[in-house]
Computed example of a mutant assay.
Amino acid sequence: MPSVTYVDYQGQSTQLELAEGMTLMQGAVMNGIEGIEGECSGSCACATCHCYVDESWVGKMPPMSENEDDMLDGTASERKDNSRLSCQIKMTAELDGIVIHMPEEQG
């Protein structure tokens, strides 16, 4: 299974293997990763799963939908060029090894 590394705001990292098709938000919530809340359960309606995709992975990401782009305008932490909603990133073999960083706050 492909892996993802979640890096919290303090720099602590946790690596998990996720089934292909599972979102990075689902993986975080199911495994108790702090820093991703996912209040809307992945329906792209809240932005509480905001994350920063590691710069080395930005160019490998699938395109962002217009809805995700709109939701990112309402994040609690600063929106950056590498901001994404983890509920919109599905794990694939191509994303094996992806690293995402959690913002300071959600909600």
Rank of each mutant, 00 (worst) to 15 (best):
M1Q: 06
M1I: 13
P2K: 03
V4W: 01
T5A: 03
T5C: 02
Y6I: 08
Y6F: 15
V7M: 03
D8K: 00
D8S: 00
Y9R: 11
Y9L: 00
Y9K: 09
G11Y: 06
Q12F: 08
Q12T: 06
S13L: 01
T14W: 10
Q15A: 13
Q15K: 15
L16F: 06
E17S: 13
E17K: 03
E17A: 12
A19H: 09
A19M: 09
A19G: 07
A19P: 01
E20T: 13
E20P: 02
G21S: 10
M22C: 10
M22T: 15
M22E: 14
L24E: 07
M25Q: 12
M25R: 11
M25P: 10
V29Q: 07
V29D: 08
V29S: 05
V29F: 09
N31E: 09
I33M: 08
I33Q: 11
I33T: 07
E34I: 07
G35R: 00
G35A: 06
E37A: 10
G38W: 13
C40I: 05
C40Y: 14
C40V: 02
S41F: 13
S41H: 11
S43V: 08
C44T: 14
C44R: 03
A45K: 00
A45Y: 05
A45Q: 13
C46M: 04
A47G: 02
A47I: 05
T48E: 05
T48S: 15
C49V: 14
C49T: 14
H50R: 06
H50G: 12
C51M: 13
Y52R: 01
V53A: 04
V53E: 09
D54E: 12
V58Q: 05
M61R: 04
M61A: 08
P63R: 02
M64G: 00
S65E: 15
S65H: 04
S65W: 10
E66N: 05
E66S: 11
N67T: 15
E68P: 06
E68G: 00
D69R: 04
D69P: 00
D70N: 09
L72S: 02
G74C: 13
G74L: 10
T75Q: 04
T75M: 09
A76K: 07
A76W: 03
S77M: 06
K80T: 14
K80N: 10
K80S: 05
D81F: 03
N82M: 08
S83E: 02
S83Q: 11
R84T: 08
S86D: 11
S86P: 05
C87W: 03
C87F: 08
C87Y: 06
Q88T: 13
I89M: 10
I89G: 02
K90P: 06
K90D: 00
T92N: 08
T92C: 12
T92M: 06
T92D: 11
A93R: 13
E94Q: 14
E94I: 00
L95V: 04
D96K: 00
D96A: 01
G97N: 05
I98D: 03
I98G: 06
I98W: 02
V99S: 04
V99L: 01
I100H: 05
I100T: 02
H101E: 14
H101Y: 11
M102T: 15
P103S: 10
E104M: 14
E105M: 13
G107R: 10
